[in-house]
Amino acid sequence: MAGFDKRVASYEEAMEGIKDGMTIIAGGFGLCGIPENLIAEIKRRGAKDLTVVSNNCGVDGFGLGVLLEDRQISKIIASYVGENALFEQQMLNEEIDVVLTPQGTLAEKMRAGGAGIPAFYTATGYGTPIGEGKEVREFNGRHYILEEAITGDFAIVKGWKADRYGNVMYRHTAQNFNPMAATAGKITVVEVEEIVEPGELEPSQIHTPGIYVDRIIQGSFEKRIEKRTVRS
């Protein structure tokens, strides 16, 4: 049984093995469903020259934005990087290499990476700067570009509930990129709000089956809101 027990005792243990130059795939959309404590641990450890794959790069002082403070990120693959002054500054100073990638292509790159598919054709980006230099093929009269899959040395994921076997459920739109990220890491680390007993999660409701998950830890989360919008 212990062989399937993915729990680790501390955040230090959760990110054990992260080194300079590694590629980190992170779940989250904006500040929603981001592995905030795992990011904080990467900051604490100070690993540098990281390639980060994530839809966004957090905001100043929160989320992946904290990794910019000590210049830990040298390259980011993302679809949208706005709302972050430090990021803009490092981008303008060419201290950080930014590979802008259409959001659906980014999700599919992670999914393909985790599913053992090295590349795929998509119409997204054909005829635009994103398609330049990429192989083009025509299927049924439409043009598609070849996009390559992404895998990471680490995947860092935020879940809602999990059991010790690493079966994970996500909550509401905090799901976003997390399930694909979870499949695409050589080491996948998931932090959750609650670890429950095996059998408590309905098997058919599990979003990420434990086979993808290497380490699991229960944490507490700030869950900062980027744009609080209410109706009167």
Binding site: S79, G82, L100, P102, G104, I130
Partner: peptide, 9 residues
């Protein structure tokens, strides 16, 4: 340049 988000897809 802040990115295309989902617009290209």
């Amino acid at each position: 340049i802040k990115g295309m988000g989902g617009a290209m897809d």
